[in-house]
Simulated scan of single mutants.
Amino acid sequence: MNLLEYMRRRNKMTLSEWEDTFEKKEREIIVLRHEGGGGSLRNGFWERDEYFLAYVDCETGELHKEEGRIEFPVIDKEEPPFQFEEETIYKLRVHEKLPEEVPEGALPSKNHFLVVDILEANAVCPELEEMLIEYRKPVVLQDDILGDLTYDKLLKSFEGSIDWLGGKVHLSLSVDKDNKSGITKAKKLLKTMVLEQEKWDADLREFAAGKLTKLACEWAESDEEAAKITEESFAKKISLKLLWVTAGGSFTAYLDDDELFFGHSIAVSGSPKKGLLSADIEG
């Protein structure tokens, strides 16, 4: 079974079939709910997911310092049966997810639990309380060139801003706080771009203009407006607003379109080794 077939099969699951993917035995666990979650539409219901940072098995007392998720069904047009606050410790009655084989490209289920009942909110658990204190502490990268970059736990990226040719540009390092080599590589790329900002700014504008001027003419509201759009005028109108870099050292620069595309961002992507590779409109 390939990934597409696997996803289609999951989406066709009825509520009873989905519940059968969990153990029959009930367990009690204490979870540290942090941030994030989502939902997937199944056959007649939504599968709601809420993420947790760690959990304690109430039977054994063992602390599991691994992220996971608690799940529960939501019937269309009905109120969710449970509400979970962020950064809160909950004692729950649950069924654990059964092991399953998954195709290449899909992540196996780990630390997934079906919620039966909330036994206690703001439960007392010293181990998880200690983890919550650490979790709430801000993680800040300090750099002489880039300034202070603060870690966004939900986005799993370091965020900040920098002076750029008389204006401000937002910086985003899309790298986990524990990925030391990724942080080093992302910072090196950003510092190179900031220190050589005049060159990079001109190159980004010129590349975007070369790739998108024809499209901007097609988007123009009249032939007269289209006639005014040249590569030179295009490059002068747009301006850099965000630099987004990855742990692998690639980047995307997001530029303000000055209404050339009715407010859509212009995204120019590339890497130090391969140079500028693509320019598209987004948003």
Score class of each variant (00 low, 15 high):
Glu127Ile: 08
Asp176Arg: 08
Pro138Asp: 10
Leu98Glu: 09
Leu154Met: 08
Glu23Pro: 00
Leu255His: 05
Asn43Trp: 01
Glu62Lys: 12
Gln197Cys: 09
Asp256Ile: 06
Glu17Lys: 05
Phe261Val: 05
Lys24Gly: 12
Asp152Leu: 02
Asp257Leu: 04
Gly275Asp: 05
Phe158Cys: 02
Lys168Tyr: 02
Leu114Ile: 05
Lys97Glu: 09
Leu128Arg: 07
Leu92Tyr: 06
Lys274Ser: 01
Met193Glu: 05
Leu255Glu: 02
Asp76Val: 07
Asp152Ile: 02
Phe234Tyr: 08
Asp258Cys: 07
Leu132Trp: 07
Trp244Asn: 15
Glu19Ser: 07
Leu276Trp: 13
Cys217Ser: 14
Ala279Gly: 13
Phe82Tyr: 13
Glu206Ile: 07
Glu104Phe: 15
Glu17Arg: 03
Gly167Asp: 14
Val245Asn: 03
Asp280Glu: 15
Leu3Glu: 13
Phe207Ser: 01
His64Pro: 00
Phe52Pro: 01
Glu66Val: 02
Lys180Gln: 08
Leu63Arg: 02
His112Lys: 06
Arg69Phe: 05
Arg42Glu: 00
Ser265Ile: 00
Glu101Arg: 05
Ala123Ser: 10
Ile162Arg: 11
Ala209Glu: 05
Thr246Asn: 11
Leu41Arg: 11
Gly147Gln: 08
Ala247Ser: 15
Glu134Ala: 07
Asp49Ser: 08
Gly61Phe: 09
Lys65Ile: 12
Ser222Trp: 11
Phe113Ser: 01
Ala186Phe: 07
Trp46Met: 14
Leu92Ser: 09
Gly160Thr: 04
Ile145Phe: 09
Arg69Trp: 05
Ser16Ala: 14
Gly263Met: 05
Glu5Ile: 07
His34Tyr: 09
Leu53Thr: 12
Phe22Gln: 04
Arg33Trp: 03
Asn2Arg: 09
His170Met: 13
Glu101Asn: 10
Leu204Arg: 01
Thr184Val: 04
Glu232Gly: 00
Gly249Cys: 10
Ser172Cys: 14
Lys188Trp: 03
Lys241Gln: 14
Ile75Trp: 01
Leu190Tyr: 11
Thr213Val: 12
Leu189Ile: 15
Tyr254Ile: 02
Met193Cys: 04
Gly210Asp: 10
Asp176Asn: 11
Glu17Asn: 04
Gly160Glu: 03
Ala220Arg: 00
Leu119Asn: 02
Ile118Glu: 00
Leu4Arg: 10
Leu204Asn: 04
Glu67Ile: 03
Ile75Glu: 05
Ile162Trp: 06
Phe234His: 06
Thr88Lys: 07
Glu66His: 09
Leu41Gly: 04
Gly275Asn: 05
Phe84Asn: 00
Val94Phe: 01
Gly36Asn: 08
Glu71Ile: 14
Leu155Phe: 06
Leu107Cys: 03
Lys168Cys: 07
Gly38Gln: 09
Ile29Trp: 00
Leu240Cys: 02
Glu23Trp: 00
Leu165Ser: 13
Trp46Gly: 09
Ser16Thr: 14
Ser265Phe: 09
Glu225His: 08
Ala227Tyr: 10
Pro138Cys: 13
Phe72Pro: 04
Phe207Trp: 08
Arg42Cys: 02
Arg8Tyr: 06
